[in-house]
């Protein structure tokens, strides 16, 4: 199967005062289409930075990231915004729903950047909310939903545009065990039933267990995972 994401010699550093801190160094990585990849590693290892770079939220210092054949490191800011809206679905640790919009409107939000008619948008949103079993919560505001339900709305928002890949940054980090399990089951279904490529950053070995592939980052480079992590996950 052809890789959907191809990363070559990726380096990223941040400046703090006069100091330059290297966060990612010469990362090369391929992710296959339909893969469910877990990115693990200790805090500060650069996993979220890598995820942000793959999702087109940040720019690398050097190297290239090709997603579905497009080198996103060459795209301008506005082109990158358009690219994100068409190719990336986001799931965040704290759900990042807009508090003043209902569940339906939150899911509809990315669709207003498309050319879909109101009727088509409604159909897409309804399908996405059905997928996460929240069809009875369409008019609820985020504050009226539990954490697990909010994350399910966020998953519906991530899939509603039918993106090339879904990126998830600690999707279960703010959830209790039962809700986390439910969210992970959903993500697993997205991968197995719909064939979505999912890249998930997590600390949670249980979450990583749901993935069919895992990469371990340590101090900005890809490394072999410690035995403990492997045995817990696989």
């Amino acid at each position: 199967m052809a890789p959907i994401v191809e990363i070559k010699d990726l380096t990223k550093s941040y400046r703090r005062g006069n100091q330059s801190i290297i966060v990612l160094e010469n990362i090369s990585l391929s992710i296959e289409d339909g893969d469910f990849l877990a990115l693990m590693g200790p805090s500060g290892s650069g996993k979220s930075t890598l995820l942000n770079l793959i999702a087109g939220l940040d720019k690398a210092d050097s190297g290239s990231i090709k997603v579905a054949g497009i080198d996103i490191s060459l795209l301008s800011e506005s082109m990158l915004a358009k690219w994100r809206s068409e190719n990336v679905g986001f799931i965040f640790q704290f759900y990042n729903l807009v508090p003043v919009l209902t569940a339906f409107e939150n899911v509809e939000l990315p669709l207003i950047l498309t050319n879909l008619s109101k009727k088509e948008r409604k159909e897409h949103v309804t399908t996405a909310l059905n997928l996460v079993n929240l069809e009875d919560r369409v008019d609820h505001y985020p504050r009226q939903l539990s954490g697990g339900q909010q994350q399910r709305v966020a998953i519906a928002r991530a899939v509603v545009t039918d993106p090339t890949m879904i990126v998830a940054d600690e999707p279960t980090g703010d959830l209790d065990r039962a809700s986390a399990e439910e969210v992970l089951r959903l993500m697993e279904r997205l991968s197995s039933d719909i064939g979505k490529t999912i890249i998930m950053v997590t600390h949670d070995p249980r979450a990583a267990k749901k993935a069919n592939n895992m990469k371990y980052l340590e101090k900005g480079v890809l490394a072999n995972a410690p035995e403990a992590s492997f045995s817990e996950c696989l």
């Binding site: 939220l57 915004a81 358009k82 809206s85 986001f90 990042n96 939000l109 950047l113």
Partner: peptide, 16 residues
Amino acid sequence: TGEIGTMRALGFNRSG
């Protein structure tokens, strides 16, 4: 601020 970051991530450009 977080909301703005989310909207930008979802694909809203600066002018949006």
